[in-house]
Simulated scan of single mutants.
Amino acid sequence: MIDTFMGFDPWLQALTATLFTWITTGLGAAVVFFTKEVNDKFLDTMLGFAGGVMIAASFWSLLAPAIEHSQNHFIG
């Protein structure tokens, strides 16, 4: 399946990836329409997971490259 995807033209790869993320986001958001109540423990777990993902994203996207960049340009 990955070999098939890699054989596509770049514009078709981008379109396929965009549609995939759009569909999965839509399916995840559709769950809201089928739930009447949310368990507090489940909500706390999901909020903690989302917070952890955001902290990890900020570290790997911002802090790690900045630390590496500063170590390469250290004058000492």
Rank of each mutant, 00 (worst) to 15 (best):
A17Q: 01
F8E: 10
L47Q: 06
G48T: 06
A14F: 03
K41T: 15
A64Y: 05
F59D: 11
A66V: 09
I67D: 10
M6R: 13
D44T: 13
F42I: 15
A30K: 00
I67Q: 12
F42P: 06
I23Y: 07
T35H: 08
V32L: 10
D9R: 07
M1S: 09
A50V: 01
L15D: 07
D3C: 01
A14V: 03
I67S: 06
M46N: 11
D3Q: 04
E37I: 08
D44V: 11
A64N: 02
K41N: 14
F8S: 03
D3R: 03
Q71A: 15
T4D: 08
W22H: 05
I67M: 13
M46A: 07
V53L: 07
G28P: 02
V31D: 02
F74N: 10
W60K: 08
Q71K: 11
T16F: 09
V31P: 05
S58A: 02
V31W: 02
M6N: 14
A64Q: 06
I2G: 00
F20V: 05
F59I: 09
Q13L: 02
L12I: 13
G48W: 03
T4E: 14
K36D: 08
I75E: 07
F42Q: 15
N39C: 14
W22A: 04
A50R: 00
K41W: 12
S61A: 12
F5K: 03
N72W: 09
W60Y: 13
A30T: 04
S70Y: 14
P65K: 04
L15P: 02
D44R: 04
M6H: 14
A17H: 00
F8W: 13
G48Y: 00
F74H: 15
V31L: 04
T45C: 13
G48M: 00
L12V: 12
A50S: 08
W22D: 02
G51M: 07
Q71H: 15
A64T: 03
W22G: 04
G7I: 11
